[in-house]
Design a protein around this nucleic acid. Structure first.
Lengths: 254, 254
DNA sequence: CGAATGCGTTGCATATCCTGCAACGCTCAT
DNA sequence: ATGAGCGTTGCAGGATATGCAACGCATTCG
């Protein structure tokens, strides 16, 4: 809606691909160099871009710090964290917490596996939305039209033979997940990694987040992992209770 | 330099403090509501802000994802990571990697302590610049005028009695750090936590990053921690070598 | 060694695009 | 019912962003 701001913001994803010089930015924006320069300068003043020694621009530190703050005032996260840690202490596997927000699902917390073989993932990273167990739970709860629209719009990359192949299959899977109230990903993203996940609900019953336990099958088989399901669900329910119940504990910020 | 973009970007730190509604944003920007609305809309389209169910705005997911990408293409980080992990495996303590960028020092990587007592810190979080060992190393390497200017501008919060009290003391400390080539923080930030840190240098000898080992003194005393100094320095030197030497291994992106 | 190319940068005139206003619709509380 | 408070819209005026052309500076090539 605001052309100038629109252009300025478009620079950021562009720089996320890697550093770029003024000319490249101007070209990809389709504007004159002087225009790009002024936009970059403004971004620079705010610390969103950084000018490295070779004069090229890349994303700046303030952006990282801001994102950090953004995550820190997600209240689900605060409440969930100790539960995730406790679950990790019980089973030793990687525990994730994820939320859905406007066509993306992303991890907002993680407790690392205590086994030497760890899976790759990072807080803040958008998850493989068509296969991840947490994504299924979050999308399954969307209003039907929105869910359908989103499913149609997605790509369905075949990470493995067991990846969700297309929108129809995905919608069917979501329906199933919706009914059973939990989800799995059995080798749909990484051949050897399995997950079980459960939803965290707000006071109105809507799914506000999802948590999962993941483990490579060199550590435990899928069947063994599934035996953790009741525990995972109980943990998720405990978080739900605390989240919707508004525990009076810890109300530091007004 | 660009008023519109300037205003739009100012909204983000504002929202980082917590969700806000349209009126609040307009007030704090000192603009008309309709203006704020248009800016917020533009930010929304790009996913930088999110409109929660109560209509208030907060920082959006794209911001988090972007910051993630920003960190992932810092090459020091890639190179350093395995070294940090190895160091952690040796000593068991928390290992940090930090960089300086325009008046801020922030952690860009972290390997968690394997002891039950862990220190609080988060990747992406700006560090306590006046006391942290890594910050001392990074600032000590700045050109003298810049270092002095920065030191004058900083606040010197007294986290503990051992915190750096003022600019003069800080500059003296930086001089010392500069000469000895390593730094410590002995209870200057958290009473019970000590750190030893060493610099990572680029091909031209300039400090590009700094790494540290931190441990609470309930686990090891400051003296014991200092015995790790040679190992920390060796690790930092190894990273420096790899970083400046341009190892031919792994050149995926052109 | 000098010319030429490529880059970031500046000042300026044009008109585009942003701004603030005022009025509207809506929800919620009185 | 009535009013207050909030987000939203269309519009006219003018501040503000834009592209141009020219400059400085480095690096490259003749």
């Amino acid at each position: 809606m605001s052309q100038t701001v629109d252009r300025a913001l478009s620079i950021l994803p562009l720089l996320a691909e890697g550093p770029a010089d003024l000319g490249q930015v101007a070209d990809r924006l389709g504007v004159h160099k002087s225009t790009a320069l002024r936009l970059l300068r403004t971004l620079h003043e705010h610390g969103f871009v950084y000018r490295q020694s070779d004069q090229r621009y890349r994303l700046g530190a303030r952006l990282i710090a801001l994102a950090q703050e953004a995550m820190e005032n997600l209240d689900v996260r605060d409440i969930a964290h100790p539960h995730l840690v406790r679950l990790n202490e019980h089973c030793g596997h990687t525990v994730h917490l994820a939320v859905y927000e406007e066509n993306e699902v992303l991890y907002i917390d993680k407790v690392e596996s205590r086994y030497p073989v760890r899976m790759y993932s990072r807080i803040g990273k958008p998850v493989a939305i068509t296969v991840a167990a947490v994504a299924k739970l979050l999308l399954a709860d969307l209003p039907e039209p929105e869910r359908r629209a989103l499913a149609e719009k997605l790509d369905y990359p075949l990470y493995t033979p067991r990846s969700t192949p297309n929108a129809a299959a995905f919608l069917r899977e979501l329906e199933k997940v919706r009914e059973q109230g939990w989800a799995t990903d059995l080798g749909g993203h990484e051949e050897s990694i399995n997950c079980v996940a459960a939803p965290i609900r707000g006071a109105d019953g809507r799914v506000v987040a999802a948590m999962s336990v993941s483990a490579p099958n060199v550590v435990v088989t899928a069947d063994e992992l599934l035996t953790l399901l009741p525990l995972v669900r109980r943990t998720a329910d405990a978080i739900s209770g605390e989240y919707s119940g508004r525990t009076p504990v810890k109300e530091v910020n007004a």
